[in-house]
Design a binder for these strands. Structure first.
Lengths: 340, 340
DNA sequence: TCAAATTGCTTAATCGTTTTAGCATATGTG
DNA sequence: CACATATGCTAAAACGATTAAGCAATTTGA
């Protein structure tokens, strides 16, 4: 028995009275292949179990060059959306015999850069990344160095990196169409200032639908900063409600919706009578709101599973590429229904 | 250059024209200690950087017997409370040069058992565990085998395992006292059925405070199941409100509070006029509720940091033991204030 | 009956590090 | 000048596993 009380292959070999090589072969199920005798194989298995042998994964991985490790880089694991994703990735990865390393970037480019390097040093075989603003070239670099990456939740058009995202254009198309059907005309959007395409697509879906419906009414897309959003959102909503006299609003992210609802409460705006509201992503607060909030639901399970599956395929086959845009669903509740 | 395009120590050594041993010594900052010449050391560092050398952590760890890996086993990483914990543990662990493996047990004993084994096989040097019902002996076994463990959020009295928890008794003492001060007399508690001490302590804090205040009124502690809690909670609340005519309720967990508020909405109970309410742990829904919910706030950062710090101390010093019960805070909002 | 094939195992190299022991050469001491 | 010490490096073993190559002993085939 070597250090730490851990039983090694050698210990088992000594106990059985054979070479370590034989033990390795047997325990890896290659007894037939290496023509090991049946009785001795049985004996090895028995004694290994008795001694409570567990292979040292470090040694195993060092030898094989595989770490069975993948990295999940999100913006913030304490954000329920990403926590949900993490849980599913974790479960699926375990089934596939991979271990997941998780880290948060706080939407910061330097952090992203550093974390990718750290993870690569730790030997991850691939990465699932929620890229932040300005990380296009970084991701492109990974792709060009042939390192397996799958983007999650967000993507970059024009570079051949796999991605597992929502069909964001469709999401706001659904929401806008629903509001129009409910008889709303002056519909506004609260977005935030970014160059990321998941948000741009959401904006486009809204604009496109409004234009096609023939509503000349130009609805200003207020840009608010994602970090100190509360005052910004209050301003935006006051402008929308009191100056522009809008009758519906779509919030482009969950955080915007939460802060927006908070502001609307402060303003004394009654939902849905004064204003119809649609949020993004499920949130317990939506169901507990005095007017249950209609929201755009992402297929979280599918997005997460798609990401991990695609990554593993990519690790095993360097040519595998899959960009998927999954179908959103509009969960209609009270907040978006026309007062009768 | 060996496989995978990765630069190894040997590659650097060859490039510089020295032995791998020397390169290792220099790059580990042991040049002085091993009497390496200044010029050659400088040259090694320069070339290593140029070649973009990064040590293979697998080999390093195999050699040292250290993995710099710790495990975090929670009941569900998609639960915001644990997601928050995970984030802090992650950050602190990185500072201490550890990597964190996260898994979820779903409050299931077999899962816990399996995950602990899996993590040990992966070579974690220690574990932070949120133990579930029935895992006392399992944890005791770990402790007896001298494996570093720190319990988080929950603990077992009578076994000398480090733990980082809330002072749960004090938590409900605070809440109950506050309600009494507000003039409430018929105060009830919604708990769930478990033998875990964090919940028993919460119940005890409430009972103790009520008795000391001299309120003979016996308030039934409804036990509801944690899994399919919605119907159970509705029943419990209907009984409390309509039969027992209570005027205040304390929910012992966040989930109970959320489902409870949901039920109270359905019942048409007005907060705080018909019923005062106190929840557990912050939740966005509390601030968005028509009556902002008073809640017991856990010092999440402290709990998480205490846990990881204690674990690392324990890894480095087999005798280190610390059981801490951290101070809760009552965030008083509208839901618990006496209607005037 | 004797070479060839098969069976059942061991030896040794390897993965990328770290570290102890040791070997020259140079320097210091009396 | 001889011997001890200091200096600057290398060789080799080790961590724990995998696997190609090889070696006896036995069985098969013509």
């Amino acid at each position: 028995m070597s250090r730490e009380g851990k039983v090694s292959l050698k210990d088992v070999a000594k106990a059985v009275g054979v070479s370590p090589a034989l033990v390795s072969m047997v325990l890896n199920g290659k007894a037939k292949q290496y023509r090991i005798g049946d009785e001795i194989a049985k004996k090895v298995r028995k004694i290994a179990k008795e001694m409570n042998y567990a292979p040292n994964l470090l040694a195993k991985n060092l030898r094989s060059g595989k770490t069975q490790l993948i990295g999940l880089i999100v913006t913030d694991i304490s954000n329920p959306f990403y926590a949900n994703i993490a849980r599913i990735v974790e479960d699926r990865a375990n089934e596939l015999n991979y271990t997941v390393l998780i880290s948060s970037t706080d939407e910061n480019f330097e952090n992203t850069e550093r974390l990718i390097e750290v993870m690569q040093n730790k030997g991850v075989e691939g990465l699932i990344v929620v890229p932040c603003d300005g990380s296009r070239e970084l991701i492109k670099g990974l792709y060009e160095s042939n390192f397996p990456v799958v983007l999650l939740d967000r993507y970059f058009p024009g570079i051949d990196v796999s991605s597992s995202c929502l069909d964001n254009f469709r999401a706001t198309t659904l929401a806008t169409t629903h509001l129009i059907e409910q008889g709303h005309r002056k519909i506004s959007l609260i977005a935030y200032d970014t160059e990321m395409y998941h948000i741009l697509d959401r904006i486009a879906g809204y604009e496109d639908t409004m234009k096609k419906a023939g509503f000349e009414v130009y609805i200003d897309v207020q840009k608010v900063n994602i970090l100190n959003s509360k005052p910004g959102i209050l301003d935006a909503l006051q402008n929308m409600v009191h100056e522009k006299h809008i009758d519906a609003v779509i919030f482009l992210t969950n955080m915007l919706a939460i802060n927006g609802l908070y502001s609307l409460n402060e303003m004394g705006v009654k939902i849905p009578n004064d204003l119809a509201v649609i949020g993004f992503n499920r949130n317990v607060a939506f169901d507990l709101h005095y007017s249950k909030i209609t929201f755009i639901k992402q297929p979280i399970e599918k997005i997460a599973e798609q990401a991990i599956n695609t990554l593993v395929s990519r690790i095993k086959n360097r040519n595998h590429l899959l960009k998927s845009f999954l179908e959103p669903e509009l969960i209609v509740q009270e907040s978006s229904l026309r007062a009768s």
